[in-house]
Design a protein around this nucleic acid. Structure first.
Lengths: 345, 345
DNA sequence: CTGAAAGCGCTTACAG
DNA sequence: CTGAAAGCGCTTACAG
């Protein structure tokens, strides 16, 4: 291995330049794929870098980028949805460390899943000259096309979409559903189960339900499973649960999506003794767990999702680093009444 | 706020030096508490820095430290204890990012809790001129004295000790015990419980048992609780569990420490149907959970403990940063058969 | 007690 | 297509 004049074995750009007989500027052009380098020169530099196991110094790179004032755009369908509060909190905490280096967030919050609105938000991010985009993309061809044509790096969060991106950060929904099933299997005397999902059109919801059912079927013989789509809406969920409970006997309800407040209202009004398992750690869910009205909830670490997604975007700006793993799944956890809620380190 | 000649509002050491009418060198002396600065000069610099909300640039600092080859010493009582495998894995993964900047680990592994051996290990760390120490300290006055006199920053991991340190990284054992109790309370027909702990002399073990019992007592009327100390030893645990099971009827055993292999052997030989709850995610525990011989285990994220502890030590070396929070508790999680084991992001 | 200069390892204009 | 020089914001000798 090469030992430079300081007796240090770590090769720098200066070392590579010397070994290749070119200037540092040229080495920089090669390493950063800038245009206008003779093909042979480029190959030589690359060969020497490889032979000497060149690794760039991330701190030197970041120092040069100090006054670039990078902006990370965020498009998130969070309005009116308590679940996203902690994702956004994680994002804001994440950017704090980098604010002294001029980095900032440009958050656009949306309500519901309107394709046209999301398109406008992405256009705004472009207009604001953001250097990266973190988004909860709607699974729609128009969005896919728009994101494909966007020329800044993308991180999808919580909900994935098949586009070129730095990474997806989110939840393994199938496993999340399995854990709910594992918890349900703890209980005795469960004859019939009701699953309340949001919409079968959303892959996350679908996977959760499938994971749940597959695990239940492995272990549960008297399988009577009903499924309701509540559209993440409290009123719709309330009505559907109320109507179903008036005709069927249910021992356990698994709320696999939003609309939990409405659903629980219907359960209480029915005056039946029904075990409840939910997802996530929204304030209402936490308070009902503490009161033992919900026996368990399966969480997906939203705070860390937000933190991690911003981190990836920032590191791409400052260090040009590209995550090795394209799919970053945060572990789902079973939470009971003694658990720490909304407190991820 | 001050705007320097570049029109940038972020103040640098250069800006502070100019405003104070001194050289950058003097500003550096003040900021780093180096000796030999006139008292008034020092106060002036500090005042101006505060007025202008000066924040150091971590990347510039790290760049200067590039060829310092900092060494992080690790003293860990891990030999023969599967639990520590993932702590060490987390440590090694953590240092990887920093190896290109010359950082390295100097790990000394010990077997058991012999005070003299730990003293020798710490001496070796000193002799090796390490720049920080990460340690699982034995709760002993001699160790305490030695660590107090050590002149490098300390991070305690998994087990705490009352000495001056950067931080403690570990588990909230009380809550860890509570979660085991919450899980136990899911089960029907539990009349009598056996707790197998390691040693009441170890604070972590003690707290876990206390957290468990306090939560059980809140909710469990027919409370018959027996406690055994297995000294983290398989054979001792085997014998004690075997003897107890031959005289008493037990519905649930909570293994709150090591010796689980021995304890489970005794349970199997007894041919009784006993529910088992354990701690941690050692290979044996995981395999028994998958076989449904253990119904749940309460984990404490050892991988993240290792990762975080090294991170704190590294950041102190590179950036001189001191953690705001002196106690970093990783969340305990309830793991059932579908859980992801040993896979913390 | 204090200052001027060089250096950490990159990137960025500028000049040719 | 290429090079020489300056700069990012700190710290480190060295000189006085």
């Amino acid at each position: 291995m090469y030992v430079n004049e300081r007796g240090i074995m770590k090769t720098t750009m200066k070392d590579i330049a010397k070994l290749a007989g070119v200037s540092q500027g040229t080495v920089d052009r090669v390493f950063n794929n800038r245009s206008g380098v003779n093909k042979e020169t480029k190959e030589l530099v690359l060969k020497i870098a490889k032979e000497n196991n060149y690794q760039f110094n991330m701190y030197a790179r970041a120092l040069v980028n100090t006054n670039k004032n990078y902006k990370i755009g965020v498009v998130i369908n969070s309005i009116g949805n308590d679940f996203f509060v902690n994702i956004i909190k994680g994002m804001k905490d994440s950017i704090k460390t980098y604010e002294q280096n001029g980095l900032s967030l440009n958050i656009i919050e949306l309500k519901g899943y309107d394709v046209e609105e999301q398109i406008k938000a992405i256009e705004k991010i472009e207009y604001n000259k953001c250097d990266a985009l973190v988004i909860t993309p709607i699974d729609d061809p128009k969005i896919k096309e728009q994101l494909t044509e966007l020329n800044i790096p993308i991180v999808t969060i919580n909900n994935d979409l098949d586009v070129e991106k730095l990474a997806f950060v989110g939840c393994d929904y199938w496993n999340n559903g399995e854990l709910a099933a594992d918890t349900a299997l703890f209980l005795k005397n469960i004859q019939s189960i009701l699953i309340v999902t949001g919409s079968n059109k959303m892959s996350g919801h679908r996977l959760r339900v499938e994971g749940f059912i597959s695990r239940i079927n492995e272990n549960f013989n008297e399988k009577s499973i009903n499924i309701i789509e509540g559209q993440d809406d409290d009123i719709e969920t309330y009505k559907k649960v109320r109507d179903l409970l008036s005709t069927k006997s249910i021992d356990l309800i698994y709320f696999a999506a939003g609309g939990i407040i409405g659903g629980l209202r219907a359960v209480k009004e029915s005056n039946k003794e029904i075990k409840i398992i939910t997802v996530d750690e929204t304030p209402y869910v936490v308070s009902e767990i503490k009161k033992n009205n919900i026996i368990a909830t399966i969480s997906q670490q939203p705070y860390l999702q937000g933190k991690k997604a911003i981190e990836l975007a920032v590191q791409h700006c400052l260090f040009k680093s590209i995550p090795e793993d394209k799919n970053i799944f945060l572990t789902s956890n079973i939470k009971l009444s003694s658990s720490n809620f909304n407190l991820e380190v």
